[in-house]
């Protein structure tokens, strides 16, 4: 594993911030657009303004919390099933085409 230099870290941090701002802008625009048209859905809940936006946001929060709670119970070290499992093995080198980019 390689460590990032401070400049690399700074670059990825600024890239990450930029994605966040762009997504936030899009989210605000899409959220506001709920008021511009009459939604037609199959259920009452779909007529709540911004239902899908809220649903998406809450769904991911719920998923993350569930995964956070469940993962200590449902995960073990990679060697847990070794040697009868492929997860603890290296992928066979003769089936790879490991080549690096020409610099």
């Amino acid at each position: 594993m390689t460590h990032q230099s401070p400049s690399q870290k700074g670059r990825s941090q600024s890239g990450s911030n930029r994605s966040l701002w762009i997504t936030l802008g899009l989210a605000v625009l899409l959220g506001m657009s709920s008021f511009l048209y009459e939604p037609h859905g199959y259920f009452e809940v779909e007529h709540i303004k911004g239902f899908y936006a809220l649903f998406g946001f809450v769904a991911l929060c719920v998923l993350f919390i569930a995964a956070k709670v469940a993962s200590p119970l449902l995960t073990r070290h990679e060697d847990y099933y070794a040697p009868k499992d492929t997860l603890s093995e290296e992928f066979p080198e003769n089936q790879l085409g490991r080549e690096n980019k020409d610099v």
């Binding site: 936030l24 899009l26 989210a27 899409l30 709920s34 936006a53 649903f55 998406g56 946001f57 769904a59």
Partner: peptide, 8 residues
Amino acid sequence: QLVVFVVL
């Protein structure tokens, strides 16, 4: 909306 708010 669903996709963008999940990304957010």
